[in-house]
Amino acid sequence: MSNNTGLDFERPILELEKKIEELRSLSAGEIDFTAEIKSLQSKLDKARRKVFKSLTAWQKVQIARHPQRPYMLDYVGLIFEEFIELSGDRCYADDKALIGGFATLDGERVMILGHQKGRDTKENLMRNFGSAHPEGYRKALRLMRLAEKFSIPILTFVDTPGAYPGIGAEERGQAEAIAVNLREMMALRTPVIVTIIGEGGSGGALGIGIGDRVIMLENAYYSVISPEGCAAILWKDKARAADAAVALKLTSRDQLGLGLVDEIVPEPLGGAHRDPEAVAAALKERLITNLKELTLLPPEELLEKRYRKFRCMGVFEEGIEE
């Protein structure tokens, strides 16, 4: 993965990696570079630890948005034995930014849903950069109801900068589509596991984000507004996004501490894109384990627990003020 699409803070590491690779290819010739490679390697290890062990909230946001970060379909290929994509909201269109269908996980039937971003400009136009329209949320609901009908558990994968803010989206009821999903997901009589794999952008994330378990990848973020949007409104300056990212407490550690997510799946040093297979394997194990626990619960208990989980979220004071 040593190409030049790295983030600013990744660059010294990528440069060292490139140098080592060059020396390795030269080593095939008559000169021996083993000693140089060894010293560079230890330099690299130090640099990696220094940069990646103390990532700021804003750097984590950048990793969550990394152009090489594994997207939903990458995990689908690595985690599930089969995926049959189903299309359309039966109302207006098929949204390629929010996809779903039947899949097989370790021999079991599941319904999977998630935001999908594009790798290049052409694909991003089709995927709308992972920003879904109302038809995406309505397709998601259609597929969730289909899963409920056949008692199939639902796994959602959240990775969106936010639901799309455009004219068509408003005309077709973006807010209504999300609101209905929130109401209906709370009542689905089948287990739902949500995984935030990259960007957890506000209502667009929550629109497929209500479940019995919420898992978050280590460098994913979850926020009520993008750091840039928050900075523009509260600081009146988009350039303060790094400050907003800190204030918004949007990292996986913060979410776990606030009780808003149940568990974190660790990522390799530097982010999921440095070893997608390892992250997928770890996530797969967590999905299987959680699903086994959830399928044991009778639907009534499942629904009561899901309601209680979200019912108690939020911190406020009550009584006589100090």
């Binding site: 609101a179 929550l206 009520v224 409104i233 808003l260 979200f310 979220m313 939020g314 911190v315």
Partner: peptide, 15 residues
Amino acid sequence: ARMQESVLSLMQLAK
């Protein structure tokens, strides 16, 4: 949603 309560306020939508 109220930005000053971040995801805690987002979860009020769910609640």
